[in-house]
């Protein structure tokens, strides 16, 4: 507990890490572009006045994809060491789903 693990990287390691970080950052920008794109499509398809039965599932799917992109890229789930974070977030999502399902079906109208 008293010892913090800080080991200095060698020059090669450092350069390698830097390169990977740069690539990763470029990746993030791509992900961002995708998210903007999805948001725009969702927005446009509602504005265009298409059938709700088509649009509703579509935009929900887009929202889910966007959230996955945030979590896996912006919040680094795609890197290792996030098992527990994923476990708790997926459990939360599952409970959230059950609750919302209940509230739109058996809230007693």
């Amino acid at each position: 507990m008293s010892h913090d693990v800080t080991h200095t990287r060698t020059q090669q390691e450092y350069e390698y890490d830097r390169k990977r970080a740069n690539l990763g950052m470029r990746n993030q920008v791509t992900v961002f572009a995708l998210m903007i794109f999805l948001t725009f499509i969702a927005f446009a398809s509602v504005q265009a006045g298409m059938s709700a039965y088509l649009v509703a599932p579509l935009i929900l799917l887009f929202a889910a994809v966007q959230v996955a992109l945030q979590l896996y890229y912006f919040m680094h789930w795609s890197e290792k060491g996030h098992g527990m974070a994923q476990f708790f977030m997926y459990s939360a999502a599952f409970i959230a789903f059950t609750m919302i399902l209940a509230f739109i079906t058996i809230i007693w109208w």
């Binding site: 409970i95 059950t98 209940a102 079906t105 058996i106 007693w108």
Partner: peptide, 18 residues
């Protein structure tokens, strides 16, 4: 434990399916 809460509400009238 998270899937059973409505057993406290059987008589509320949530319907036979629920």
């Amino acid at each position: 434990g998270f899937m059973v809460w409505a057993h406290h509400m059987f008589t509320v009238g949530l319907g036979p399916t629920a």
